[in-house]
Design a protein around this nucleic acid. Sequence first.
DNA 1: ACTAAAATATGACAAATGTCATTTTTTAAT
DNA 2: ATTAAAAAATGACATTTGTCATATTTTAGT
Lengths: 236, 236
Amino acid sequence: MSKSIDNPECLFCNTRMHSFFNVLDKSQLQLLTQHKSCAIFKKGQYVFNEQGLPHGLFCVNNGKIKLSTIGFDGKEQILRLAKSGDVIGYRALISNQRYHCSAIAIEDSSVCIIDKNFFFQTLENNNKLLFEIAKKIGNDLKIAEEHIVSLSQKNVRERVAEALLFLKATYGFAPDGQTINITLNREEIADYVGTSTESTIRFLSEFNHEKIIEISGKKIKIINLSKLTKTANLMD
Amino acid sequence: MSKSIDNPECLFCNTRMHSFFNVLDKSQLQLLTQHKSCAIFKKGQYVFNEQGLPHGLFCVNNGKIKLSTIGFDGKEQILRLAKSGDVIGYRALISNQRYHCSAIAIEDSSVCIIDKNFFFQTLENNNKLLFEIAKKIGNDLKIAEEHIVSLSQKNVRERVAEALLFLKATYGFAPDGQTINITLNREEIADYVGTSTESTIRFLSEFNHEKIIEISGKKIKIINLSKLTKTANLMD
DNA sequence: ACTAAAATATGACAAATGTCATTTTTTAAT
DNA sequence: ATTAAAAAATGACATTTGTCATATTTTAGT
């Protein structure tokens, strides 16, 4: 199980401004603090589970979470990635449906859990918040549909390059300014790209030999960003 | 350009009950009628265009519309399909962003266009409607992410079978109870499946020889639904 | 530091899919 | 009904990608 920890004040949450809770005012935030709890999820733990019913909303306070689903031969498909300040679990909650994907901690993460009933009460009186959530889901849809085009039309080499750019866009660089600030194993990268682990390894090795990236274990440095962008067949 | 026609009453719109406008009451529907116009889009005409800014919301009164985007080598990707009663263009409108896909009439269609400002005014006073739209976008997201898993993990044969089931699920059967009630050419099916036109043709021919379907021109009859479902690697 | 287990890497080959050329069929215009 | 154009079908082949086997490297636990 996840481990409960001190319940931080939403008002002073440094990641809140990036999430859709930035539309709440001071008193609403104080109320929010009273209706949520915070927990630590160790690497590999499930924040929520595919097929489960939502009982609350999850706010990533600190850490990294993957949203993934198990496909047809037990193969995992990574659908989205969440970082500090991201809210997850809103789609199923809003629709009052079962989760269609699981949320799994990629590294130890602290996550606030907002009570479902309180959340719905807040929504009823807060059109603005609902609007923000609708926009957020809409943005997810746009990104998902871009992923569809990529999967349909790009080859594996292009998609592996694209995956690295996606990881960089999501989690940025480590303090050295070059190393992608997330540690996924090759299988997980493959599970995002939609290919086999071996193919992913092959293309990463290729990029390494072509001095586009520099690999040391699971750490990936982007040496030549513009070449990587060209390799991904993206124009900017 | 599209051709304006008589403006039907939303109150008596027989397709409305299937869309998220079913949460509006009688007076709201009468008001809605005053703030929309209806137009005919001939087969091939654009209802809205990728990259364009939304000026209203589109409600398919009658007909069939494809939502698609142009990918990397000018290849089209069909993302969604709309039928009578479906509303389209809500994602970009809600987010106040440019459309990320085009809406093109697959056959002659009549489409009501609801004024943007009126729509936003209605939303402000109607939490329930906004809620329905959020749910609708959430459902689109779920479907898109299922499509991602399919594109990542299934082979082309399975995806072609899946495409036929998708067409059947969306548009149902013609009066004969077997013929899929939509006419797409092979290229368009390929543009949904994410494969080449030739591969699509090959697998359709295969299904034909295996007596799973029966092809006569663009008309496709599903002869053996359970076998088609198995071919798609779907379990139900 | 040592060892077993897991992850990564690589080669060889098979299978799936795309591409191009060509034929056949269908569609639409006169 | 005739004909030209477009779409569908098919074959041959090239390319891409997956699979399996095996070697190498890294990681984690003692």
